[in-house]
Computed example of a mutant assay.
Amino acid sequence: MSFTLLLTDVNSPLGKALEHELEREPFKLLAPSGGELDWSNEAAVIDYVEREQPDLVINCRGWEEAYYPGGQGQLINAARCLASACRQFELPLIHLSSYTVFGADAKGTHSEKDLPAPNTETGAAFVEAEQLITSVLQRFIVLRLSWVIGAYGNNHLTRLLSAFLAGASVNVNRRLRGSPTAQSDVARVAVAMAKQISCGAENWGVMHYCSGDACSEDEFADQVLQLLIQQQLLTAEPSVTLVDTEPEGEPPSAILGCRHARDNFGIQARSWRPSLLPLVKQWLHNREQTKHTLQ
């Protein structure tokens, strides 16, 4: 029997990673474009779900935009409409969320039982999106993520690479800690959960996933810089300034305890370090392609 999966975004870097991972699976994949479906229109989303009849939804709509000033509306609106559609048709939902829900909490590692306490618009938006889902659905997974890195988009890795390759000044905070997690690793985990759900798994609730290799922001920046030096990729000497003050507008810890994902789905955390060089090479390749396109 075929299993139909609805993926709400294939345009963002995280959405593309999910789409790429799903291409290897036997699922029938639904991935409507923004022009095909208005994700902020509840009636339109309900009509689409009724017509296409998916068996499971993976939602990353607005996930990346939520990190930009004023970009949180897409995340909240999509969560609201999907919650309504999934409730009406009794559909399970995997919703991607973020460590930013924990705000200024000084706890070193956040467990699934910790109460959200956001201190930014981004964190507040992720909390609101979660609550829209958890308040009306019983069959859901809210999957919170740590620092998500990749060769595409705006993330900890791409920002460092842009600055280092330009010889720009970079501030890194030794009090910021996280577990860098590759976009492809997030996709691996979400699809593994989807596969088990398609086979009848009934494990629901709030879960966390991040790499099993935590570090401070300055440690991550040093790893990136040393890799660029080893590969002889630097054309200018970057200036790195170490900051040792309480971070503003960013949770001091993005390290997540992943017990529920491990116990319920057998998910094993991977280190980000083996993927760093391939990601850097992919980013450089993308940059060269962009240069040639603009010439």
Rank of each mutant, 00 (worst) to 15 (best):
V10H: 14
S33P: 04
G34Y: 05
E42A: 15
A44W: 06
Y48A: 04
Y48H: 08
Q53T: 10
Y68G: 00
G70L: 04
L96V: 14
S98F: 01
Y99L: 06
A104F: 09
A104G: 12
D105N: 15
T109F: 08
H110W: 13
N119V: 03
A129N: 02
L132P: 09
L132R: 15
I133F: 12
T134I: 03
S135T: 11
S135N: 15
I141R: 12
L143F: 07
I149E: 02
G150C: 03
Y152G: 05
N154T: 04
L157P: 07
L161S: 04
P180L: 07
T181I: 01
A182C: 13
Q183W: 05
A187G: 12
R188C: 03
A192I: 02
K195M: 02
I197H: 04
G200I: 00
G200Y: 00
E202S: 14
G212K: 04
E217Y: 10
D218N: 15
D218W: 08
Q223K: 11
Q223P: 03
L225I: 01
Q226A: 10
V243C: 13
G249S: 11
P252N: 12
A254Q: 13
A254K: 09
G257R: 09
A261Q: 03
A261Y: 02
N264Y: 07
N264Q: 14
P274D: 08
L276T: 09
L277R: 14
L277S: 14
E288Q: 01
L294R: 14
Q295G: 13
